[in-house]
Computed example of a mutant assay.
Amino acid sequence: MPTELEELVEFLHHGNTQIRQVAAEHLVGYSQTHTTLFKRNQLEPIRDLKLLVIDYAPIAKNALTILINISHDGEVVKALATDDAFLETLLSRITNPKEPNANDLAMLLANTAKHDSLQRILTLQRPVPPTLSTSKYAIDQLLDCFVKGAKARYNTHADFDYLSYFFADIARFPNGRAYMTTPQPHDGDVIPITKLQVFTEDGSHVRRVGVASAIKNAAFLVSSHPTLLSNLDPDPALPPPSKGANLLPYILLPLMGSEDYADEDTEGMLDELQLLEPDKEREKDVEIMKTHLETLLLLSTTREGRDVLRRVKVYPIVRETHLHVEDEGVREACDRVVQILMRKEEGEEEEIPEQSDAQGGKLLELKHADEDEEEQIIDIL
């Protein structure tokens, strides 16, 4: 005999609107602790909830909340991510400038991106939302939605911040990294990552977290490093890429405070990083800081990358971060970056920084390379 909860789930497909609304509303709380309740009868409640996403706004809101809460489950996320019709439902409603539940839809889309099948969104074509984008590709439309929708400029009901998590997950895949770092002909050869990186110091914590993760995951594509590292004042001794992202200022500024640098430190430092406001503050979230430091470590994978980071004086910035942030994880990440930047290259003498920390000891010590052989940087989100 079905329990009361199981009977309540059955009402999700009831013909009476009020009954569906009551059922969905009461099931929201149980979705946080009773995932299996929604997997009964071969995922029948999931099929019902997919339909409720296009129901009246209050019902759709509760249905989306339930799906968000249970989409951590492998079976559930597979049922959502592999359903082409449901994916189009999410896309059509997210890109609708009048959709009241756009933020919840964006959050659910971000959760479905954890399933490998959602890589198909990179090549998926759909109708062009005329007020949003000029591209027929879903991924471009979502990127335009994220940029134009910031601070409720596109849809007064939504800020689309959770799309940053979606892009972070898409960038876990090799073809997602390639998309993020390749100029797009339809968009005047704009590199998609440049549309994300401008939000590394955004007022929204969600945006900063997601964007930092997306940048880090994209940086796993070593062949893209010349594009990511290029800036407006390239080294004339190095061949510039055809199109550059100028990424460095956007991942270094969150690491910087208002401290002054010596002349020898600022000589060669990027223009965007000099003469900062006296009230300039560092990123307060240490996890975001660690993500940016890990991105720097990835960008130092090649000799060319390390040379660029040295030339634009990344070391003094990391040094000051180490001195001013009292978090062991951040300081360890700083250590790792400095070990890479200051280590001996082939044919060079080893260089050890002799700066002092607030306690008067040596700031950073160079470790032997084999001490960190087991350390790894992994894709996140």
Rank of each mutant, 00 (worst) to 15 (best):
V53G: 07
T302N: 02
V206D: 07
L366H: 12
I193P: 10
I378E: 14
A245T: 05
A358S: 13
N103G: 10
Y56E: 15
T321P: 02
H292K: 00
Y261K: 01
N231S: 14
T291G: 04
V222H: 11
L273Y: 00
G188P: 07
R207L: 02
T123F: 05
A23T: 04
D55K: 13
R207G: 08
V314T: 15
P127R: 03
I94P: 02
N217P: 00
L253D: 11
P316I: 00
G149L: 08
N69G: 02
P97C: 07
D357I: 08
P127F: 04
S71I: 06
S300I: 00
D370V: 15
V286S: 07
Q42T: 14
A102C: 02
T301V: 11
S135M: 10
P241C: 06
S117C: 12
A152R: 15
A24K: 03
C334S: 05
H322C: 06
H14R: 11
P278K: 08
Y30R: 10
K290T: 06
V28Q: 07
E294W: 04
L221C: 07
I139E: 09
A333P: 08
T95S: 07
A212I: 10
Q42H: 14
F38S: 03
H26R: 15
G305M: 05
R310C: 09
A150H: 14
G188S: 03
L49P: 11
T291W: 01
L8M: 13
D48W: 05
G257R: 03
E345P: 05
G176E: 01
Q355D: 15
L238S: 13
L297H: 13
L64Y: 07
I380M: 06
K344L: 01
L37I: 04
T200H: 04
F166Q: 09
Q21F: 08
D116T: 11
R47Y: 09
G15F: 09
R177S: 04
D144S: 07
M180H: 08
V53Q: 12
G329Y: 14
Q141D: 03
Q21K: 08
L67F: 02
N103V: 00
A138F: 07
Y315T: 12
E99I: 04
G203D: 13
D271K: 09
D271I: 08
Q32M: 12
